[in-house]
């Protein structure tokens, strides 16, 4: 699978990571789903078996692709930065980009494709403005490394970090409607983003958004 960009959150009772469970809970059963950057297929497998979705995946790493196909999941080895253009408009009900946006070469272009290909997009990413990250940079003057951001600056696949506020600003600029939004706090507990975006941006370790095009 792609090098895990965010260290696993605690698993919940159903056996998948909390952030993946949040994504899964946004998806209506029986729909068509494309999971971009599907890794070893954990989420896709869950969706196919427990949500009865018609699921497809796109994954860059050979190990991830082999794992998915070996598990009977329809997954294509490819690069989201270059291959999404070959997918037709409105082909899927949901396109999921889980913990992958920050590793894209052109996140804005990818986001445009996701909402072209899918009627809705579900995006999750690590929040670079989480207070511990801020504190790390402030105190030590070094690029933050912790449990959720384990890589050194020179080997990280994460080349486009953003904060929750940055992402909200991009959505506003692109005219994207946010239907639902959640943050996960440092205990891995999901919370609605609520009214204070400032607090969400300070205390959210990760964010999950359900998006659609305006109009």
């Amino acid at each position: 699978m792609l090098p895990l960009r965010v260290k696993s959150m605690p698993a919940d009772r159903k056996g998948i990571r909390v952030d993946l469970q949040l994504v899964a809970d946004m998806i209506e059963p029986g729909t068509r789903v494309l999971d971009v950057g599907c890794g070893d297929g954990t989420l896709l497998d869950y969706l196919v078996h427990f949500r009865q979705v018609d699921g497809r995946g796109l994954e860059l790493s050979p190990d991830g692709v082999h794992a998915c196909i070996s598990a009977g999941l329809p997954v294509i080895q490819g690069d989201a930065d270059t291959d999404l253009k070959d997918y037709p408009d409105d082909a899927y009900d949901y396109v999921v980009l889980s913990q992958t946006l920050q590793a894209m070469y052109a996140p804005k272009a990818v986001l445009t494709h996701l909402l072209r290909i899918g009627r809705r997009a579900i995006i999750s990413f690590p929040n670079f403005a989480y207070w511990r990250v801020r504190l790390y940079l402030f105190l030590w003057g070094r690029m933050p490394r912790n449990e959720t951001l384990p890589y050194t600056w020179y080997e990280t696949p994460n080349i486009h970090f953003c904060s929750i506020l940055d992402f909200l600003e991009l959505c506003r600029e692109m005219g994207i409607v946010i239907e639902r939004s959640h943050v996960l706090d440092s205990w891995g507990v999901p919370r609605m983003m609520g009214r204070s975006r400032f607090l969400a941006n300070l205390f959210g370790v990760q964010a999950v958004f359900l998006l659609r095009k305006s109009g």
Partner: peptide, 21 residues
Amino acid sequence: NQKIVHALNAVAANVSFAEVV
């Protein structure tokens, strides 16, 4: 081989693709 994959993606077909080293 990827051109086959792209042609199938363009019609939202059920397709898996792997490149073996």
